[in-house]
């Protein structure tokens, strides 16, 4: 188990931190470790396959957490709609806490892609999975991975161009006003 965690632990933790706020990420990481521990016999022998396999586990843990989170938020939303509390603390800083604003164009372009395309690109660039590892993580053939990856890259490039040309005018305007 220690060998497995040494191999996949940090990459999986980073995977989670890229997709949810820090506190929840470490909670979910705890869940993932528990699942890995319980399913130690199912871990692929090939060390190359262990990481994508662990990422699949992490994705499921993350999806479960997000689903129950959304369900709870909806329920509370209904309660608040019936009996609204007197104060609201709508702090935009909290909303943006998780976002990194270094490349807004890229974020917008990524957000415009189909979710599966965007996730494939993230796994490719952030998790740095090889096509074979991507195939394990997504449960498809390496051939299908390369086709989808090629398509997703082309779509992202097109969206980047689109967002950049649309945003160019406003960006210029913004900088003039700032002066």
């Amino acid at each position: 188990m220690r060998a497995l965690v040494a191999l996949v632990g940090e990459p999986v933790r980073r995977y989670l931190h890229r997709r949810i706020d820090a506190a929840t990420a470490d909670d979910v990481y705890g869940d993932v470790l528990l699942v890995l521990w319980r399913r130690l016999d199912d871990v692929p022998d090939d060390p190359n396959h262990a990481l994508p396999w662990a990422i699949v586990v992490a994705r499921q843990c993350l999806a479960n957490t997000q689903r129950s989170e959304r369900r709870r938020t909806r329920l509370v939303g209904r309660i608040i709609a019936i009996d609204p509390p007197s104060l609201t603390t709508d702090d935009p800083a909290t909303n943006a806490a998780h976002a990194t604003d270094r490349d807004a164009t890229l974020r917008t372009a990524l957000a415009r892609l189909r979710r599966d395309d965007a996730e494939l690109l993230r796994l490719w660039a952030w998790e740095e999975l090889t096509p074979t590892q991507l195939a394990v993580a997504l449960g498809i053939t390496p051939n299908a991975v390369s086709i989808r990856l090629h398509r997703a890259k082309a779509r992202l490039k097109a969206e980047l161009k689109d967002v950049a040309s649309a945003g160019h005018v406003t960006a210029k305007e913004g900088s003039t006003h700032a002066r």
């Binding site: 940090e10 933790r13 980073r14 995977y15 931190h17 890229r18 998780h98 976002a99 990194t100 270094r102 490349d103 890229l106 974020r107 690109l121 993230r122 490719w124 660039a125 952030w126 890259k153 992202l156 490039k157």
Partner: peptide
């Protein structure tokens, strides 16, 4: 080359690049 540039740009926006190991 375009792919490499795209990957580099994505990596630069990695929200976990400053994440310290546990």
């Amino acid at each position: 080359r375009g792919d490499d540039a795209l990957r580099a740009r994505l990596r630069a926006a990695d929200p976990a690049d400053a994440l310290a190991p546990l």
